[in-house]
Design a binder for these strands. Structure first.
Lengths: 165, 165
DNA sequence: ATATGTGAATAGGTTCACAGCC
DNA sequence: GGCTGTGAACCTATTCACATAT
């Protein structure tokens, strides 16, 4: 990425530097934070506490960027042990309640592909606005809901293509 | 994605369907497999067996797409226990040997950001051609090496931007 | 009829060249 | 001199319209 492109991109949102001097980094960062909608800590839930889900739960990189996983959900969660973890791992039934009470708008979906659409439907019914989907399927969602797919196998395939002699 | 685009994309690699009839799915799949360089099982190594690394090790989606994680490496691996896991988890010192012996060309990098560049340098020295990087830093690599970045925090930020009312 | 293949048209994104400001 | 802002030029990707084949 060249300097020109970065400047061009910024102009789509306004004018943030001073010519001849440069950008005030703090001010610029604050502007971007506002654009991204991460001005205050955003509550996120995680569904599916398998291998990948557990790793995401323990991953501390989200908080740093303004996200807080307020709760996780899994079919096999024990209601009595739910609060032993931090964030707590609840059974699926509790999902609508938590979403409502905490005003959650984003969910991380880390369940097997076979369960993904069904879980997504539950999320949609609760009014979730954005899904970060790790399941290797294309989710069917209404237009106003945003889905961001992360497919690890595809990332490897992509690499594979580019390293061919 | 519209049908036209898929057809257009395919034409960049040749002509695979028969007009009026359609595509022979099996033949088309074989062609794509060849293009991606996944005709035979590709050996991959994983470096960093923390939260994310362990999840990736247990993830079965890679094999299905033609990749085999032949070994993992971690600073804290116990040499005596190395072979107890499948794939085995070796200490870092063993990395060059395994890469050479198995003809490994791709590596998954799941170490903390602070260690990522150093580990990447080791990988480069062994002649690795592609890195799937989960560390939240921009790796410095020579031009002929391909890096594919997966940054989970950025994926969430991306979502956040699009779900703003 | 139905589906692919493709040149032309369109849209979108990147780079350039230079104007404006410290 | 050094850095940002921006219209124009350029390049790339997507869509359209239709030719081509079964």
């Amino acid at each position: 990425m060249k300097p020109t492109q970065l400047r061009k991109d910024l102009t789509y949102f306004g004018q943030f530097g001073t010519r001849g001097l440069g950008y005030d980094v703090e001010q610029l960062a604050a502007m971007i934070t506002g654009l991204l909608g991460t001005r205050r800590l955003q509550p996120v839930i995680l569904v599916g506490v398998g291998n990948l889900g557990s790793a995401l739960l323990r991953y501390r990189g989200f908080e740093q960027e303004g996200f807080e996983i307020v709760a996780a959900f899994d079919l096999n969660a024990d209601p009595r042990q739910a609060r032993q973890f931090k964030p707590p791992v609840h059974p699926m039934e509790k999902l609508p309640e938590v979403v409502r009470e905490r005003g959650v708008r984003m969910a991380i979906l880390a369940v097997p592909g076979t369960a993904a659409q069904e879980v997504a439907n539950t999320l949609l019914a609760c009014g979730i606005a954005g899904i970060l989907n790790f399941a290797p399927i294309v989710l069917q969602v209404p237009e106003e809901v945003t889905v961001n797919n992360v497919n690890l196998a595809i990332e490897l395939e992509n690499l594979s293509y580019f390293i061919q002699d």
